[in-house]
């Protein structure tokens, strides 16, 4: 068998006809994929009366931001965006901190319960949220919490953003520990040993040697967790009962009424909510994909 033949065979070459077919199929699919978002963007700039009579596939008589303005004010989106930031930012910081120390300890030192702990974390992350929520709801309800530390007046943790943060951190730490411990196993352990020989303490080894090496994984996880927490619907709905205390994603579900009869207003609201994750995705696409595949490729 000649060497040249094998090089030619690396990617099976298609005949020209098949290639055209392949591109035609993929392009058709891609266009179909863009239709819902494209349609939402297009109709969100147009008055409802117009698209209702002429349909979405029509030349626009007028384009304006008025749907966006209405959606923003009716949905009180300034406030709800702030709520989201208040929940998502501290959650991500805590999740990454918790999971990286945990992953460091279980992946670089051997304990008796290493495997059991990782099993527990991985399995915990796969549990459905609905199964956990009633006991957590009760726990937060009976957990006294001073009103001056929260934005509710219930005197308990229920209804505070802190409750949502706690749940996110506890739940997501499972997934991130799994990913980070897989990642840390690829770092040569001689690095640890050298650090210990040189007299570095465990926290120092962690912060100055291992953690900096995990930067790609941490960046990937941060982007991934950002969308997951930003998109959280369930916990915000069940733990925060007042509409305008809720983060943006769950608050649009709460608008109801007049909002729902105007499809273009719904489209505008959807686009406002989708914007941050879409922007983050378009800018940090690489991190996204690597975050997902980090979790997957190692099993």
């Amino acid at each position: 068998m000649s060497g040249q033949l094998t090089i030619v065979q690396t990617k099976p070459g298609y005949s020209k006809g098949l290639r055209v077919l392949l591109y035609a199929f993929l392009t058709t699919m891609a266009v179909m994929w863009l239709v819902p978002i494209g349609g939402a963007i297009y109709s969100s700039f147009r008055p409802y009366q117009e698209t209702q009579t002429k349909g979405i596939f029509s030349w626009p008589d007028s384009l304006s931001f008025s749907n966006y303005r209405d959606a923003f004010t009716q949905g009180n989106m300034g406030k709800t965006f702030f709520n989201t930031a208040f929940i998502v930012v501290p959650s991500i910081v805590l999740i990454l901190l918790m999971s990286s120390v945990m992953a460091f300890a279980v992946s670089r030192f051997s304990f008796r319960f290493n495997v059991a702990l990782l099993l527990l974390f991985t399995a915990g992350n796969l549990l459905p949220a609905q199964v956990l929520f009633q006991p957590l709801f009760q726990f937060f309800k009976w957990m006294p919490w001073p009103n001056f530390l929260s934005d509710t007046d219930t005197g308990s943790l229920l209804g505070t953003k802190i409750a949502v943060i706690i749940v996110h951190v506890a739940f997501q730490t499972g997934f991130c520990t799994f990913v980070l411990s897989n990642y840390m196993k690829t770092i040569p352990k001689e690095l640890n040993e050298a650090a210990l020989v040189d007299g570095a303490s465990v926290p120092r080894t962690f912060f100055q040697i291992i953690l900096p090496l995990c930067r790609p994984a941490l960046a990937a996880l941060a982007t991934l967790e950002f969308t997951w927490l930003y998109n959280d619907f369930f916990w915000a709905v069940v733990l925060l009962n007042k509409g305008d205390e809720r983060p943006i994603t769950s608050s649009i579900a709460n608008l109801g009424g007049a909002f729902f009869t105007n499809d273009n207003l719904v489209a505008a609201a959807s686009m406002i909510v989708a914007m941050p994750t879409l922007i983050v995705y378009l800018i940090l696409q690489k991190q996204f994909i690597s975050g997902l595949t980090l979790g997957a490729s190692k099993g």
């Binding site: 978002i37 969308t227 998109n231 959807s270 879409l278 996204f288």
Partner: peptide, 10 residues
Amino acid sequence: YMPVVLSLAV
């Protein structure tokens, strides 16, 4: 991949 970054609610 774009739809994956949207929440199912959206």
